[in-house]
Computed example of a mutant assay.
Amino acid sequence: MSERVYVEDGTVAHELQFGESPNDRAAQALCGRTSWPGYWFGTGDQDEYDTAAAMPLCVACASVLRHRAGG
Rank of each mutant, 00 (worst) to 15 (best):
S63D: 13
G10N: 01
R4V: 01
S35M: 06
R25P: 13
T34P: 05
R66V: 10
P37W: 06
A62Q: 06
R33E: 13
G42H: 02
Y39M: 10
V7D: 01
P22I: 00
C31Q: 03
S2M: 11
G19L: 11
R25W: 11
Q28T: 00
E20I: 01
A52Y: 05
Y49H: 13
L30V: 03
A62L: 11
L57D: 03
D24Q: 06
W40E: 04
A29I: 05
A52T: 01
C61I: 04
P37F: 05
E3D: 14
A60H: 07
A13R: 02
A52E: 00
D50G: 12
G70I: 08
G71I: 02
G19D: 11
G71T: 00
Y49N: 09
Q46K: 14
G38S: 15
T11N: 15
G38P: 09
Q46L: 13
M55C: 09
L16C: 05
Y49A: 08
F41V: 01
H67S: 14
N23H: 10
W40L: 05
L57F: 07
G32F: 06
T43A: 14
V64E: 08
R66P: 11
S63L: 12
H67L: 14
V59P: 12
A29F: 03
W36A: 07
V59K: 15
A54I: 09
D45P: 05
Y39R: 10
G19V: 09
G71Y: 14
L30C: 03
P22V: 00
E3H: 12
T43C: 13
V7F: 06
A53R: 08
L16N: 03
S2E: 11
S2Q: 09
R66L: 15
H14S: 01
V5C: 02
V7Y: 02
Y6V: 05
Y39G: 05
G38V: 08
L57T: 04
G10Y: 04
T34C: 08
L65H: 03
V5I: 07
Q46F: 10
A69P: 09
G44D: 05
R25T: 00
D45W: 10
C58S: 04
S35A: 15
V7L: 12
A27T: 01
A29M: 08
G38Y: 11
H67T: 09
V64A: 06
C58D: 07
L57W: 04
Q28A: 06
V5M: 06
G44K: 08
Q28Y: 07
W40Q: 01
G44I: 05
V7N: 05
G42S: 05
E48N: 10
R4Q: 06
Q17A: 11
F18I: 06
H14D: 00
G19A: 13
D9M: 12
L57N: 04
G38K: 12
S2R: 12
A13K: 02
C31K: 02
W36N: 07
V12K: 04
D9S: 11
G71D: 10
D50F: 12
A52P: 02
Q17N: 11
E48Q: 14
H67N: 11
G10C: 11
G10F: 04
E3L: 15
D45C: 14
S35T: 07
